[in-house]
Design a protein around this nucleic acid. Sequence first.
DNA 1: TGCAAAAATGAATAAAATTCGTCCAGAAAG
DNA 2: CTTTCTGGACGAATTTTATTCATTTTTGCA
Lengths: 153, 153
Amino acid sequence: MFDEIDIHILEILQEKARIPNAEVARQVGMAPSAVLERIRKLEERGIIEGYEVRLNPACFHQGLSAFVQVESDGAATAQALAEVPSVQEVHQVVGPDGFLVKLRTADHTTLARILGEIRALEGVRSIRTQVVLETVKETRRVDLTEHNGNGRH
Amino acid sequence: MFDEIDIHILEILQEKARIPNAEVARQVGMAPSAVLERIRKLEERGIIEGYEVRLNPACFHQGLSAFVQVESDGAATAQALAEVPSVQEVHQVVGPDGFLVKLRTADHTTLARILGEIRALEGVRSIRTQVVLETVKETRRVDLTEHNGNGRH
DNA sequence: TGCAAAAATGAATAAAATTCGTCCAGAAAG
DNA sequence: CTTTCTGGACGAATTTTATTCATTTTTGCA
């Protein structure tokens, strides 16, 4: 599905996505047009899903994170959870009808309100909340180092 | 710290970060040079932390997610957890010396191995694992809609 | 080996990034 | 009430990129 040059390109983009294509070409030692072609194909194949800006949450009154274990009747709840503002992630986990929800709010007051909303959702039996004191690591990077050379998919 | 034009710019970049600056300028109805200036200042102030490519984890043998509750002696463990490959997030949570770890692996076999590694870390008393069956929502976007107009910080 | 498909190249052109002198509006100072 | 100062925004000029495409090179495979 991709070779070591693609991996190299992806590493560069993973480091700094808003970089000119010509600069990527320089770093991988290829013509800009060839690199452009490769990137386009990576996008077409869905290997690259998109490009995003990483914002500092604290600058937008979103400094408080929490995880909520939601025990619920069924999968219908997932959609409702996903639509709650401040909810960033909803994962269905193996076990007793559980969802794990990650959310971001401004402060404890807002958190309390959001938790109230979640508890009131149709089908929610109980919730257990874990407030984040400090985030030690938070990345979404994919480890590409082990993909050098092979790359079948 | 930023005004409604900055918000507009950030919304555009949040949607699609690898977009030409000239196009952003068009959308906000300003000169490209002015938009460039604003984006640079947002970067300098740390409001924009960076730009990243979003890759499809399934294409890189990272299709299985799990959350691990780690009960540990102290904060020293956090760093060790953060350094484990596959660990994407480490959060210190309020409660009995707990860390919440999010990780990504290829399959159950690899997961089992990683869990073994974590259990063996210095200071780790016990772990509880929740395997993700399905991820319903997963975003890192900041909700900018309520920041229109004010923007003090 | 040799063919066909895929990928890379390099040149040409259109578009974008970047720089910078100028201008304007609001704030602060006189 | 004017003057001065300051921060943005503008837009022209220049450098750099993006993009296209015809041509060449490489690759996979019969």
